[in-house]
């Protein structure tokens, strides 16, 4: 049960064969909701566990930022998956995904208000009470901002991390997306985040569409995001970086090249 180290990739059934053949790979992330709490593990994932790769369960449906208390059954599932794969930590988002009985179907941003900080900290504390391992919290990419933010992004995130003691899952593509869409400086945000709290880093591709940069996870990683990885590592290199690809999978050679570029940007050994 070693912490994530080096360059990893988000394990998805569609690319299980590709992932299984990466000789230098030491860690993957798996969407926690896609792993059953009992019964057999998804085939490719079981093989990785036999090779003692680190597997980090990544929750996407807890809605830790929801005003309502987090569903204990969802926390129990995340905890069970963490135990099944002998995970050193789990991760989730600073976001909400449902409200008023409706599923949004994606991660939605919180208002950067004291009230929202209280809500998310209360839910993280509820989750931590039932999780066997530490949790890392990921700030999301959002196209909308609430009209009445009281805190800026750095203060909002730092306060949540300070109050919960959680690790930071920093998504560099999200930092790029938010800065691009809000017209702010991504480096200024990196300068103010508690980088010593980073458990690991996400990197993903995206695309410009309709005047916005969309963090799609189905497009190549743009040069600007790779440059931001370099800028982050120049400040403080995180223990691990993980490539997220969720669809429109390219030929294996292209995916390998993206992993190599990531390793080069962070001066980690290539995993391909």
């Amino acid at each position: 049960m070693t912490g994530p180290y080096g360059v990893g990739i988000g394990w998805r059934p569609e690319i299980a064969g590709f992932v299984a053949e990466l000789p230098g790979l030491r860690f993957v992330e798996v969407v926690a909701e896609s792993v059953p709490a009992t019964g057999p593990l998804p085939p490719g994932l079981a093989q990785l566990r036999e090779r003692a790769l680190t597997v980090v369960p990544h929750g996407v449906r807890l809605s830790l930022g929801g005003a309502e208390p987090v569903d204990p059954a969802r926390v129990a599932h995340l905890a069970a998956v963490a135990q099944r794969v002998d995970a050193p930590l789990v991760s989730e988002h600073i976001a909400f995904v449902r409200a008023g009985g409706l599923e949004a179907g994606h991660l939605l941003p919180l208002p950067r208000s004291r009230e929202a900080v209280d809500a998310v900290c209360a839910n993280v504390a509820r989750a931590q009470a039932d999780l066997p391992v530490p949790i890392a919290l990921e700030p999301i990419a959002a196209l909308v901002d609430w009209p009445d933010d009281e805190l800026d992004e750095a203060d909002f995130l730092t306060e949540i991390l300070d109050r919960t003691g959680a690790l930071l899952l920093l998504d560099v593509a999200n930092v790029h997306a938010n800065a691009r869409n809000r017209g702010t400086d991504p480096l200024a945000l990196l300068d103010r985040l508690p980088l010593e709290r980073v458990g690991y880093v996400h990197v993903a591709g995206g695309a410009e569409r309709g005047g916005f940069y969309h963090d799609t996870h189905t497009d190549p990683v743009p040069p600007a995001v790779l440059e931001l990885v370099g800028a982050l590592c120049a400040r403080r290199r995180p223990p691990a970086l993980l490539l997220e690809r969720d669809g429109d999978y390219p030929p294996a050679a292209e995916l390998r090249a993206e992993l190599d570029a990531l390793a080069a940007a962070a001066n980690f050994p290539a995993v391909t």
Binding site: G66, A67, R98, A99, G100, L108, A116, A119
Partner: peptide, 10 residues
């Protein structure tokens, strides 16, 4: 907060 989140999702 619950009400405002519900309005946004709706």
């Amino acid at each position: 907060l619950a009400q405002r989140q519900a309005e946004l999702v709706a």
